[in-house]
């Protein structure tokens, strides 16, 4: 037996099995290639409904072509092309299907409340840390008002301190004058939102460093809250201060604690990966942690608007208390009941 072209045949041409294989399937590959290129250039939206169905079928047949080709063909260009095409098509078929708005709707309806429920244990720990910090701050400042400056930086106190009088605190802070709709609702609310969001993102991201910075950050935030409370109770303004704070604080502190809890979940999976490998366990936890955390940005936005605007609009303590209770109740209901059955896993 001889291999080669000179042995006769119809036109002296050698037909390889792999070449026949290719000739029979080539059209499908090229069609798939064109579709994938279109999606790569214009996003998944360029495909019509029937085309999205077709691309899945073409992808499956390219996958099977690849497995066959690996066994019967030695044509390097074809093998590499097929592998590349399959990979590109795989990324289209299994890539993110929905854009920003579709993902958002699904997120608020189900993904976020479920993810929040999945970090409830971490949330309990973080809340404990926060309240221990607050209690510590309160006691220390209560013992000596001069300690206030230990917990609160100058930038944060904005002139409030041991020397402030009751009247200053009441007039300049708790019942500060209304500066006009846009100034409060737009300007002030916005700067609060941006600042709080950055702090929250830090709380989450620092979970990656084994959670130590997260806990420190949360505890020190708690401590400065406690210090403020002690300062006000020193002047007999404890209740007014609590209401002034909780009208937005319910939302804001909840968001901050949630971010911290998500960071703690990440840290927990680095330290105790369980049966999975560390990387695998981190990748799994990372998903629910990230979902829980990103929703908090919306909470910060709402908190910013309440703090910037509504707080000074509702200029009496009882009204603020009712407002705070209602928002707290709404958040609790949302996180406990939204998104269907109780599930530990967001996926």
């Amino acid at each position: 037996m001889r291999y080669g072209a000179a042995q006769g045949g119809k036109s002296g041409e050698l037909t390889l099995r792999s070449a026949e294989f290719r000739a029979a399937r080539e059209d499908g590959w090229i069609k798939l290639d064109r579709m994938v290129t279109r999606v790569e250039d214009g996003g998944i939206g360029v495909l019509s409904a029937s085309e999205s169905e077709e691309i899945t079928l073409l992808y499956r047949s390219a996958v099977s072509s690849l497995s066959v080709a690996r066994n019967i063909a030695l044509d390097r260009n074809m093998l590499l092309y097929l592998e590349n095409l399959t990979l590109r098509a795989y990324l289209v078929v299994y890539g993110p299907r929905s854009g920003m708005s579709g993902s958002m709707a699904e997120f608020f309806r189900r993904g976020w409340p479920r993810a929040v429920r999945s970090v409830r244990r971490q949330l309990a720990v973080i809340a404990l840390v926060f309240f221990v910090g607050a209690a510590a701050g309160f006691m220390i400042v209560r013992a000596d008002v001069e300690n206030f400056n230990l917990f609160v930086s100058e930038r944060m106190s904005q002139g409030r301190g041991p020397d402030s009088t009751r009247e200053e605190l009441l007039g300049g802070e708790i019942f500060a004058p209304w500066k006009g709709f846009t100034e409060m609702f737009v300007v002030f609310a916005n700067s609060l939102f941006r600042h709080n969001t950055m702090v929250g993102i830090l709380c989450f991201g620092l979970g990656f460093m084994l959670g130590v910075p997260t806990i420190i950050l949360i505890a020190s935030n708690g401590a400065s809250l406690g210090a403020f409370l002690a300062l006000h109770s020193d002047k007999g303004l404890a209740l007014d201060f609590i209401c002034w704070l909780s009208i937005h604080g319910v939302t804001e502190i909840a968001a901050l604690l949630l971010m911290g809890a998500a960071g703690l979940l990440v840290a927990q999976n680095i330290i105790f990966p369980g049966r999975l490998s560390r990387l695998e366990s981190l990748a799994r936890a990372g998903h629910s942690a990230a979902v829980a955390a990103i929703g908090c940005i919306a909470m910060f936005f709402i908190a910013g608007i309440i703090e910037g605007g509504f707080r000074q609009l509702i200029a009496n303590t009882a009204g603020r208390l009712v407002f705070a209770a209602v928002t707290g109740l709404l958040w609790a209901c949302y996180f406990i009941f939204a998104g269907g059955k109780r599930r530990d896993d967001s996926r």
């Binding site: 299994y94 993110p96 993902s103 997120f107 990372g286 998903h287 942690a289 990230a290 979902v291």
Partner: peptide, 8 residues
């Protein structure tokens, strides 16, 4: 490749 992975 889920949106949550990209968010994270």
């Amino acid at each position: 490749l889920t949106p949550t992975a990209l968010i994270a």
